[in-house]
Amino acid sequence: MDSGYSTVQILLAILLISRCKAARKWDYEPILISATSSDDSLIKLEPNIVRLGRGQYGLSARVEWNYDVTEETMVDAIVYRSSTGDESDYKLLPYSVPKQSFYDYMNTFYKDVVMKNFANCSNVPQFEGEFQPPWPKQTYIGDKCTVAGDGLPDMVPQGFYKIIFNCTGPDQPSWSLIAVFKIINKMF
């Protein structure tokens, strides 16, 4: 009888361990998404928030990319958080993409987050291994994209998050994306 009880305990422990996996413990609502470009003839960005259903939102975008990226093209992203959403309440967070070359970005954050979250709803370039230049000049479309959270932290504090993404380079346009999301913790 004692060995049967131990077997049940072991089976329960295995069941509990197999069910314990990391998963996103937050949900989001996009509040704002905007873009700027120093030259719309070289890069034109048209992001927008789309309603998918009751309480469900996605992101759509059209990006007309008409310039060559070089080794000197630099990108960075800065993330701020506010508990109230008030502009004066935002504080800088350590979640960021440090200033780096476009090609380094492609092999890190782009591959780990952008490809995983936007591959199913857009025509952004996909690759395995190292990114091989050039970045294609074309029109990119994202349609009703939702962020699954792949490559992002599983747990973040509730509040408003502002993300500012910048891209610059010599003899290239400067452009940026600004997005604000309200993060809500999920119970299950």
Rank of each mutant, 00 (worst) to 15 (best):
G4H: 11
T7G: 06
L12P: 00
A13H: 00
A13I: 07
L15S: 09
L15C: 09
L16S: 00
I17Q: 07
C20K: 00
K21T: 03
P30G: 07
L32S: 07
A35R: 03
S37W: 02
S37K: 00
D39P: 03
D39S: 05
L42Q: 15
I43E: 04
I43A: 02
I49L: 10
R51N: 14
L52M: 13
G55T: 02
G55N: 14
Q56G: 08
Y57L: 01
G58I: 06
G58W: 11
S60T: 13
R62A: 12
V63G: 08
E64W: 05
W65L: 13
W65R: 09
Y67F: 15
D68P: 09
V69G: 09
T70I: 12
E71S: 14
T73P: 06
V75G: 05
D76M: 12
D76L: 13
A77C: 13
Y80H: 14
Y80L: 13
S82N: 06
S83N: 02
S83L: 10
S83Y: 03
Y90G: 04
L93A: 00
Y95I: 11
Y95N: 03
S96C: 07
V97T: 05
Q100H: 00
Q100A: 05
F102W: 10
F102S: 04
Y103A: 02
Y103L: 07
Y103V: 04
D104Y: 02
N107L: 04
T108I: 00
F109N: 04
Y110G: 08
Y110P: 08
V113Q: 03
V113N: 05
V114H: 07
K116M: 10
F118K: 01
A119R: 11
A119S: 11
A119E: 12
C121H: 10
Q126D: 08
G129D: 01
Q132R: 15
P134A: 13
P134G: 07
W135Y: 15
W135R: 12
Y140L: 12
Y140H: 01
I141G: 01
D143N: 14
K144I: 03
T146I: 14
T146H: 05
D150S: 13
G159P: 02
F160K: 06
Y161T: 08
F165H: 01
N166E: 09
N166H: 13
N166Y: 04
C167N: 06
T168M: 00
P170H: 06
A179Y: 00
A179K: 04
V180F: 02
F181D: 14
I184E: 14
N185P: 12
N185Y: 09
M187Y: 12
F188D: 14
